[in-house]
Structure formats: structure tokens, C-alpha cells
Amino acid sequence: MLPTTASKGRGAARSAPPLFGPYLRRIVKWQQMDIEYTFWQMVHLCTSPKVVYQHTKYHKQTKNQWARDDPAFIVILILFLMFATSAYCAAYGESASHAALTITSVVFFHFLFAGIVLATLCWFLTNSYLREEPNSHVVEQRVEWLYAFDVHCNSFFPAFVILYALLSNLLFVVAISYYHYLNFLGYDVLPFLDRTTFFLYPIGLVIILSPLMILIGFNPTRYFLSLYFG
């Protein structure tokens, strides 16, 4: 007799590997991180992001989870943020205390806190409204919160490369649009979600607002630099 959907769901829940425990323990174990694969992902997120999400499918097949079990990506991205912000602080001759405050703000507020909020929102929306109705032959699946945070990190990296290397109105629009495009790819790869084009809507909003920003004289470069160094 074939197992029911509910029993399969319970079996899947029992076999699913724990996410946060091993993940957090590996943060302090640099020798266990796959640094080479992390840099490979970062390069392809800027050149061919679909390849990265194709490997996400392989990861699901081998590890039985969509989220990364290696924190190397987040650790290296935080190091990049700290280095880039330190360079800005040094260029503007800020004091050590102001530099420390700026670095803390960029890492913990603009990246981690904002990422947690966005990931939680996307995690809630996908699980509540975008999942396809499972049939009796398919195990019910849900978006893992840690996977939602992975999608944010993947989307954030190219935006970081563009915005921290050179800021302007055009690059700001490109970076934000690319962030939401990668956000869309991250959820579109999940076969149990539907209507994932929802994540492309902010791109249209950014494109509509960009002429308005130019007309009112809003420059993201000046805004962010004045925020930290004004």
C-alpha cells in the first residue's frame, strides 16, 4: 500500500537534516569551509547566475536540503563588506571609532538585519501564497528559512560589487534590478512554487522611480556617503 501524503510529509520531516546547528558550528571552523567553491559561486552570480541555482538542485538531491550547509559564502561576503567599508573610511580620513561604527552598521544593519527581514518576508510569502497544491504522489515541501537567506546573500553579492565599486543613479538601478532578478531565480528554481514572477515586480517599480530620482536631484552616491561620512 502506498503511504499517504501526510505520512510521507512526516517521513520527510524526520529525514530532513538539521540546518542551524551544524551550520553555526562550521562558522568558527575555517578549515571545514569550501572556499574555492564559494569563490566559484560568487563569480558565476555575476556572470551566469542560473548555473549557481542549477547546482542548488544538485545540492538538494545529495544533501536533502535546498539551503547551503557551508557558511563560507556569508563569512567571505562579510569580510568583503568590512574591507570595502574600511577602504571608504580610510579614504575619507574618519576616526577609528567612526570607522568601527560604520563597519558595524553596514554589516549588521544593511546586510544582516535587512537580509533577515527580507528573507523572512520572502519565506512567509512563498510558503503561504506561492506553493503549488501538492497531489497524492508528491511529498509536500516548504521553503527553508535558511534557503531564503541564501537567496538574499546570492542577490546581495552582485549588488555589493556594483554599488561599492562605483555608485551612480544608473548603477544603482542596475544593481537593485539585478538583486531582484537573482531573488526571482532563487525561488523560481524551487519546483513546488508558483507565480514566482512576483519577485520581478520591484524591478518595474525601480525603473519607474529612476526618472523621478533624476528629476528631483536624488543621487544615491551622495546619499549613502553623507549617511556615513556627512
Rank of each mutant, 00 (worst) to 15 (best):
Y129P: 05
N169W: 12
E140K: 05
V151K: 02
R131W: 09
F157M: 05
V117R: 00
V174I: 15
L166N: 12
L118Q: 07
L121N: 02
F156Q: 04
D150A: 05
S168D: 12
V107R: 00
V106C: 04
D150E: 07
S155N: 07
F156N: 10
V173G: 14
F157L: 13
L121D: 00
F108M: 08
L118C: 10
V174Q: 04
A165N: 14
H152M: 10
A159H: 02
Y164I: 12
F113H: 13
R131S: 09
Y129W: 14
N154Y: 13
Y164G: 11
H152R: 07
S136E: 11
N135Y: 03
F172T: 15
T126I: 09
L171M: 14
H137T: 09
G115H: 01
F113R: 11
S105W: 09
G115N: 01
F111S: 13
F149E: 06
V117E: 00
I116R: 05
H110N: 10
L166K: 13
A159E: 06
L121Y: 04
R131V: 11
L171G: 10
N127W: 06
V138Q: 10
L166G: 11
F172D: 15
C153H: 02
V173R: 10
V106A: 06
F157G: 07
A165S: 15
L166Q: 13
L125N: 08
F149S: 02
E144K: 04
R131I: 07
F172E: 14
S128R: 11
V107D: 03
S136G: 07
H137S: 13
E133F: 11
V138H: 05
L146R: 14
F149P: 02
T126F: 05
Q141I: 04
F113M: 14
L163D: 11
A148S: 11
G115M: 00
D150G: 08
S136H: 08
L167S: 15
L146H: 09
V161G: 09
Y129H: 10
A159M: 10
F149C: 02
A119I: 00
V106N: 02
F124T: 10
S105C: 12
F160N: 04
C153V: 08
L170R: 05
F109N: 13
R142A: 01
S128Q: 09
N135S: 10
N169D: 13
S128G: 01
T126A: 15
V143Q: 02
C122A: 13
